[in-house]
Amino acid sequence: MNWPAIRAIYVFEIARTWRTIFQSVLSPIISTALYFVVFGSAIGSRISEVDGVSYGAFIVPGLIMLSLMTQSISNASFAIYFPKFIGTIYELLSAPVSYVEIVISYVGAAATKSVVLGLIILATASVFVPLRIEHPAWMLLFLVLTGITFSLFGFIIGIWADNFEKLTIIPLLIVTPLTFLGGTFYSLKMLPPIWQKITLVNPVVYLVSGFRWSFYSVADVNVYISLAMITGFLVACLAIVAWIFKTGYRLKS
């Protein structure tokens, strides 16, 4: 293992966050705080409890998941897309670095950032609504697994994208709608029966449900199914990344 290289890339990526602190940390915190003010306090106070949890507290796990997924994708995709765009990727490709090391450092840095961000949002949320975390180990497991998986997904998008539009189109057109329709703001039990079935094809449902279970022990689907889904998605992303490096897809001519 080329540990100095892993460290160099990791430190470089974390340093980039400090340079763009407003974009990377403050903007997701502010937007999440706005959700709490509007949905948690203003509207939430008129909504009755969901599964025995106040509405403001109910949406916290979903909102953390929303930030975790979108930030993981944007961090990782930008990290690999930008060197391709400005040409500095030459150094990475000519370095004595294996593909495993490239993935560990880029995805590790992106996942670190989004997990830290998730924890900051959790702390912010606790200011607005009363929170309890009944299964902290599971909570951290879901946080880390989702951070890694969606950072891998972002890494794939960053390699696939050959312009800025492609870089944003998947997060905008697929991930955001799936998150909003994935039970972030409601329990599946509130839906008409037919939609309760249809919505199960949305993978985000399982993540939000499992994550919410770690807080309040209430879930739309069994927590082990949630764990299996996120693990399955992780394995799929790893397989695609392995294929990209094996073929040099969009990296080498």
């Binding site: 080329n2 160099a8 430190v11 470089f12 370095a95 004595p96 670095v97």
Partner: peptide
């Protein structure tokens, strides 16, 4: 410094 690390050398 980044380049040195990337090529596997200690600081």
């Amino acid at each position: 410094r980044f380049s040195r690390g990337l090529f596997g050398r200690r600081r």
